[in-house]
Amino acid sequence: MQRHKLRTAAMILAATSLAVGLVPATASASPSVAAQPGDQVVVVDCFMKAQVRPSEFLIACGDGNSGLTELKWSSWGRTSAVATGLNVVNDCKPYCAAGKFHSYPVNVRFERPEAWEKNPDQQRYGQLHLSFPGSRPEHLPPEVTYKLWD
C-alpha cells in the first residue's frame, strides 16, 4: 500500500513537471477552491494560479523533484495556513532522471501574506515553512523555509 502511494505521488510529480512546458499558464495541476479577489489569502502555484487549500503543491516548479501531496488543512487564515501531508522528493541518485521518489511526513505552514504582483488587490502567502516530525530528505534540515514566487 505504501509503495502504491509512493509510486502514485511520483507519477503525479513527474506528470506535473512535464506539464509545466505543455500546459497554458491558466491551467492548474491540482484542485483548489476558487478564490475571489480579496476574499481569502491564496497560495500561487507554478502556473501562477491562485489556490485555496490545495490537496497538492509543487515546490520545485522547474524539475518537479519536490512537492507536497495529501495535504490536509487544519486552518487557512489571514496570517497563515497550516496542514499536514507528505513531501515527495526525488533522491536524484545517481542523477535526477534516474532517481527515486521518497515520501516524508511533513508539517506545512504557508505564511507572510503580501500583495500579489499579478493582482495587487489579492493577498498571497509569500513563504512556505516545512518541518519534518520524523525522517526527512538527507539534504534537508528538520525545518526548512522557502520564499514563494510571485
Rank of each mutant, 00 (worst) to 15 (best):
Val42Glu: 11
Gly126Trp: 08
Asp91Gly: 05
Ile59Thr: 07
Arg7Cys: 00
Asp91Leu: 04
Ser32His: 14
Arg136Ser: 05
Gly126Cys: 09
Glu143Leu: 05
Gly64Ser: 09
Phe132Met: 11
Gly64Arg: 09
Ser75Met: 08
Arg7Tyr: 05
His139Arg: 06
His4Tyr: 04
Glu56Gln: 12
Ala83His: 13
Ala29Met: 08
Arg78Leu: 14
Thr26Gln: 11
Asp39Leu: 00
Thr79Ala: 05
Val144Lys: 15
Gln36His: 15
Asn107Lys: 14
Ser103Pro: 05
Lys147Arg: 15
His139Asn: 15
Lys100Val: 06
Val88Asp: 08
Cys46His: 03
Thr84Leu: 03
Leu6Gly: 06
Arg7Asp: 08
Gly85Ile: 09
Arg78Gly: 07
Trp76Gly: 08
Thr8Ala: 10
Ser66Leu: 13
His102Val: 04
Val20Lys: 02
Ala27Leu: 10
Ile12Lys: 03
Val106Ser: 05
Trp73Asp: 11
Gly134Gln: 10
Cys96Arg: 00
Gln2Pro: 04
Asp150Gly: 02
Asn65Leu: 06
Glu138Ala: 14
Ala115His: 08
Gly126Tyr: 13
Gln36Tyr: 14
Cys92Thr: 03
Leu6Met: 02
Leu148Asp: 13
Arg112Ser: 15
Pro24Ala: 03
Val42Leu: 07
Phe110Ala: 11
Asp63Val: 10
Leu140Thr: 09
Phe47Ser: 03
Ser74Met: 11
Val44Gly: 08
Tyr95Ile: 01
Arg109Thr: 15
Lys49Met: 10
Asn119Ser: 15
Met48Lys: 12
Val89Cys: 06
Thr69Gln: 09
Glu56Leu: 01
Ser103Cys: 05
Gln36Glu: 14
Ser30Val: 10
Gln127Glu: 12
Tyr95Ser: 12
Cys61Ala: 02
Asp39Arg: 13
Gly62Leu: 11
Gln40Trp: 11
His4Ala: 10
Ala27Val: 08
Arg112Gln: 10
Val42Tyr: 02
Ser135Pro: 07
His4Cys: 03
Val106Phe: 06
Arg112Ile: 04
Asp45Thr: 10
Ser103Ile: 09
Pro133Trp: 00
Asn119Phe: 06
Asp63Pro: 04
Phe110Ile: 11
Tyr104Lys: 01
Gly62Pro: 06
Leu18Thr: 09
Lys147Asn: 12
Trp73Ser: 07
Phe47Ile: 02
His102Pro: 00
Met1Ile: 03
Asp45Ile: 00
Tyr125Thr: 02
Gly134Phe: 09
Ala115Thr: 02
Phe57Val: 03
Lys49Val: 13
Leu18Arg: 15
Gly77Met: 02
Ala83Leu: 12
Ser32Pro: 09
Pro137Lys: 15
Ala60His: 09
Pro24Val: 03
Leu140Lys: 09
His4Gly: 01
Val23Pro: 03
Glu70Ala: 07
Asn87Gly: 00
Gly21Lys: 03
Ala27Gln: 13
Ser131Glu: 06
Leu128Ile: 06
His102Lys: 07
Pro105Asn: 01
Gln2Tyr: 11
Gly77Thr: 12
Pro54His: 14
Thr145Asn: 04
Ser103Lys: 07
Pro142Ser: 05
Ser28Ala: 08
Lys93Arg: 15
Glu111His: 09
Lys100His: 07
Leu6Lys: 00
Glu111Phe: 11
Leu68Phe: 02
Cys96Leu: 04
Ser28Leu: 02
Ser75Phe: 13
Ala25Gly: 13
Met48Pro: 00
Glu70Lys: 01
Gly62Arg: 01
Val82Ala: 15
Ala27Ile: 04
Val33Lys: 12
Thr79Gln: 12
Thr16Ile: 01
Leu86Cys: 02
Asp63Phe: 10
Cys92Phe: 01
